[in-house]
Amino acid sequence: MSHAADLPVWVAVLVSAFLLLGAFLTLVGSIGFYRFKSFYERIHAPTLGTSWGTASIVISSMILFTVLQSRPVFHEILIGIFVTVTTPVTLMLLGRATLYRDRSEGNPGVPPMDAPLSGRRDTERR
């Protein structure tokens, strides 16, 4: 940790706070991913890590490198943008694949192709 020796204390505290927040959000997301009972519930859990988990760790990395190299370092934001843009694509593809598989196998608890519109509850998954 030689690079951190001459870092101002408030920077270290700020970096640590964002880093810990992100890591714990990701951990809670993974725990939820492990604990939820059905796939459709599980698909919500990793979004904790992809939204504020990633954003928080990226912010902490940006603060640290901006202070370390004493020039603005913003390239970590590319990871944030990339994760934000790609996560919906993968989750949507997975969700559609799962819906398709469940429908073709006739599993209960899955809305049919012509499910009734909003206002009424279609299925109760539990």
């Binding site: 959000l25 809670v28 997301g29 725990i31 939820g32 604990r35 009972k37 059905s38 459709y40 519930e41 919500h44 859990a45 979004t47 904790l48 939204s51 504020w52 809305p111 499910a115 009734p116 519109l117 909003s118 509850r121 279609d122 299925t123 109760e124 998954r125 539990r126």
Partner: peptide, 25 residues
Amino acid sequence: SNIEVVKIIVTGDRRGRRAGFVNIP
């Protein structure tokens, strides 16, 4: 909603919560 979901995961599966599909026009 991050705070909401963290609450749901940490407090465990309460009886009141139900997950489901919504079809929105």
